[in-house]
Design a protein around this nucleic acid. Structure first.
Lengths: 136, 136
DNA sequence: ATAAATGTGTCAATTATTGTTACATTAAAT
DNA sequence: ATTTAATGTAACAATAATTGACACATTTAT
């Protein structure tokens, strides 16, 4: 099953941003995303923890942006939503000691994965939620 | 289940490169990768189709590089191994017509995904199999 | 108290990847 | 020609990560 958490998080952030100056509920977000409130809240709780959203419990509660859209980079959202998961996965096969390539493959792949992450994150860091909202 | 095809393809290419001037069998590769020959052959057949490997059937057959290591970029391997799959997946939720964000989210996400792909591919295009072999 | 919201744990459902088996095809060697 | 040893591939099973669903605790305004 493919991972769409970054996409879902982007849409959550954009929808909250679109409802400027009001609190939105996880039920509203779940309707807009054709999913269920529990899943939304799990995503939202990561974004809250990353200080991108504020959430308020109890009657009249809901969710709002924690910062202005131009102060929220897409890399902030990426980091919060994927939680350590990398774009490219290094396999976890055991090392075959008789194979010189197998013996060094982990470090080769880890270097490569780190490079891709750094490259992508610097790309995402240049774009903000505000940039995306201009497309609405 | 996580996708490790790019990592596996890198290791296949490196292992074939390491056995310079000889043909390697899918069984040898399967041992080095702690997997089975059929899975290896599925990966190899994509790399053959992309003109990165040559394969020879029949007794005495096997696999060799189709080009010199410095003529094979990591982007070539990436393109061949992932086959249209993107680093970031756009979700496939239905559009909710009453939500302005939902109505434009697909184009916003597709733009973003394209940007990430382009950025990453240009990063990978600068590195070659030869660069990786220096780390063995 | 009640109502309405988030927070979270658990388990089921879905689905993409990986593994397995079987067999067709090919080509060298005897 | 037959045998042997290799790739190619189709079909199906097993595994595991993501998503969905449900229950219930917690919080807060009315």
């Amino acid at each position: 099953m493919i991972d769409t958490r970054f996409s879902v998080s982007i849409q959550i952030m954009m929808t909250v941003a679109h409802h400027k100056d009001e609190l939105v509920t996880s039920e509203l977000l779940a309707n807009a995303l054709d999913t269920n409130p529990t899943f939304v809240r799990k995503m939202v709780s990561r974004l809250v923890e990353a200080d991108l959203l504020n959430s308020y419990r109890g009657k009249g509660g809901g969710i709002e942006l924690a910062r202005k859209p131009n102060q929220i980079s897409l890399n902030d959202i990426y980091i919060a939503s994927t939680n350590e998961k990398k774009l490219i996965n290094v396999h976890n096969k055991p090392i075959v000691k008789t194979c010189e390539v197998s013996c060094c493959i982990k470090s080769v792949l880890n270097n490569l994965v780190d490079g891709i992450e750094t490259s992508t994150q610097s790309y995402l860091a240049k774009k903000t939620l505000h940039d995306l909202m201009k497309q609405v």
